[in-house]
């Protein structure tokens, strides 16, 4: 079953003479429960595509349907509801410095009107256990290593059981083994929870976790799979 449907998507930056099209008519379907990695060199439009899927940028041409909701015709309220079905993992963790690890992970649970503080805490601790952070639940983000922070970001992205996980270069700021470990956690948990993952990366060392690997080069998507380990 397709969770994300993209059709003839085009996107440009600038106006007039400075206008530059970065996505040239992309069409793609992302299936539920699959991990899709969009690989490609820097500047190829990967992050722009991810932001369009998240409803963070306005669609100029073409269409994106998320879990049955067409983004191009969505109201602001509908876009907010779409975003609540999505878990984000960014290149930088963007954790809230004044909150503890547990409180950071609890934040997305505030959308659930039936959620109590006790239940939310329990849920956060469970998922923090899943990413091996039991010993760090009361720490502040500044007390964690880069890899630990990214694992907190994964826990935060997954805690409210989103339909879709969008990950933008989640290993970019991590060393090789740490990046590998973070992605392994993400892969394992998404399989467990049945999330659809769209991950943008140019880190060729993690491409093997993908169920479906596509490349984005010069604004065009192709099923041509890069050679694992070759890098971009």
């Amino acid at each position: 079953m397709s969770v994300i449907q993209i059709k003839d998507l085009r996107y440009s930056f600038g106006h007039g003479e400075t206008r530059q099209e970065v996505l040239h008519g992309i069409t793609a379907d992302f299936t539920q429960g699959e991990i899709t990695i969009i690989a490609g060199p820097s500047g190829s439009g990967k992050t722009t595509l991810l932001k369009l899927i998240a409803g963070l940028r306005t669609i100029q041409e073409g269409s994106i349907v998320i879990d049955g909701q067409p983004l191009e015709s969505s109201t602001q309220k509908q876009l907010v509801n779409v975003r609540r079905k999505i878990g984000f993992i960014f290149q930088s963790h963007h954790l809230i410095g004044s909150l503890s690890v547990t409180q950071n992970v609890m934040m997305p649970l505030t959308f659930d009107p039936k959620m109590t503080a006790a239940k939310a805490r329990e849920r956060a601790l469970e998922i923090l256990h899943e990413v091996d952070l039991d010993d760090h639940v009361n720490k502040k983000p500044e007390q964690l290593s880069g890899g630990q922070k990214q694992r907190v970001a994964i826990a935060r992205a997954l805690v409210h059981r989103p339909t879709i996980i969008l990950a933008d270069e989640p290993t970019a700021s991590l060393d090789g083994p740490t990046g590998r470990e973070v992605v392994s956690h993400l892969q394992r948990l998404s399989k467990e929870f049945g999330n659809t993952i769209v991950m943008v990366t140019h880190d060729n060392r993690i491409l093997d976790v993908a169920d479906h690997l596509v490349t984005l080069v010069d604004g065009k998507l192709s099923d041509h799979e890069p050679e694992i380990g070759s890098g971009f």
């Binding site: 975003r83 963007h94 410095g97």
Partner: peptide
Amino acid sequence: HLEEYATLKSIG
């Protein structure tokens, strides 16, 4: 806190 708040904004 702009980046932190923007993160929260992006998730709804």
